[in-house]
Amino acid sequence: MSRAVLIGPPGSGKSTLGRLLADKLGVGYRDTDADVEAVAGKPVSDIFIEDGEERFRELEFAAVRAALAEHDGVLSLGGGAILREDAQELLAGHPVVYLQVGLTDAVQRVGLASARPLLVLNPRSQLKKLMEARRPIYERLAVLTVATDGREPAELVEEIAKGLGA
């Protein structure tokens, strides 16, 4: 079983904090978006454009299922990986950490010109809607919620490790 599974919207710090937490705990780090890209042979943004969101979500679910079964380190899930009910069921019993971020910090971290497929048209508005729609799921799945706004990664890693009893 993973030592920590990080969930949260784009810009919450899953990748950055995941790597730092893995280093602190002396375990491996894995990111399901990177797993999806490796399987598809192209970036997530290209999968969305060329194959559609439904195909991406299928690949993402397969990546989440495999990572939860195989990886015993720190795992970062794509922001929407928690949307499928079967993915939510797989997360039960895992040390899920919800990285909570406000819209202002998320926008600054994501950058509005980034290649985030779900944020193409009106990035700030899209990100706000996405965050509001997913928040109840993130909150329900989490065994630990950490507010990331305006905080340094090292401080957050300490709080996560302590919160998980590591």
Rank of each mutant, 00 (worst) to 15 (best):
L59N: 15
L20H: 06
L59G: 15
D51E: 12
D35R: 09
D35L: 15
D31I: 04
G18A: 02
E50C: 10
G73F: 01
G52S: 13
E54Q: 12
A62M: 03
E37L: 07
K42C: 02
E37Q: 13
R84Q: 04
P10E: 12
D46T: 14
I82G: 00
E37S: 08
A67H: 04
G52D: 14
F61I: 00
D51T: 02
L77S: 11
S76C: 02
D35M: 14
T16S: 15
F61L: 13
R57D: 00
I49W: 13
F56V: 03
G52N: 14
A22I: 00
E50L: 13
L59P: 14
L17G: 04
A40C: 12
I47W: 12
S12K: 01
A67V: 01
G26N: 10
I82D: 10
V44D: 15
D51C: 07
P43V: 05
G80V: 06
K42F: 07
V27G: 03
G78R: 10
G13E: 14
R65Q: 14
K24H: 09
V64D: 13
V36R: 02
A34I: 10
V44M: 05
S15D: 13
G41I: 00
L17V: 08
G52P: 12
A22L: 06
H71R: 07
P43L: 11
S12M: 06
E70C: 10
P10D: 10
E85I: 08
I49G: 10
E58V: 10
V74R: 02
R57C: 03
G11C: 02
E50H: 12
R65V: 07
G18E: 10
G18Y: 04
R19S: 07
G28A: 08
D72Q: 00
K42E: 14
G28E: 12
F48Q: 05
E70G: 11
D86E: 15
A67F: 03
V74P: 03
G41E: 13
F48P: 01
E37V: 07
E37T: 09
Y29H: 00
D46F: 14
V44Y: 13
A34R: 13
D31W: 13
E53W: 12
D86F: 00
H71W: 13
D72I: 00
R84I: 05
S15Q: 06
T32H: 00
R19T: 03
D31M: 05
R55T: 01
V74S: 08
D35V: 14
R84A: 04
P43I: 03
G73W: 01
A34H: 15
K24M: 06
A38I: 07
E54N: 05
L20D: 08
E54P: 02
P10T: 08
I47E: 12
G13C: 09
V39D: 09
R65F: 11
A67R: 01
G80D: 04
A87N: 12
D23G: 04
P10W: 09
K42Q: 06
L77N: 09
F56P: 07
S12L: 05
G18F: 03
I49Q: 14
D86H: 08
P43A: 13
D51Y: 06
G41H: 04
D51Q: 06
L59I: 14
D33R: 05
L83P: 00
G79M: 01
R30H: 12
D51M: 03
E60L: 09
A22Q: 01
S76N: 06
A63S: 11
E70Q: 15
D86I: 02
G13H: 12
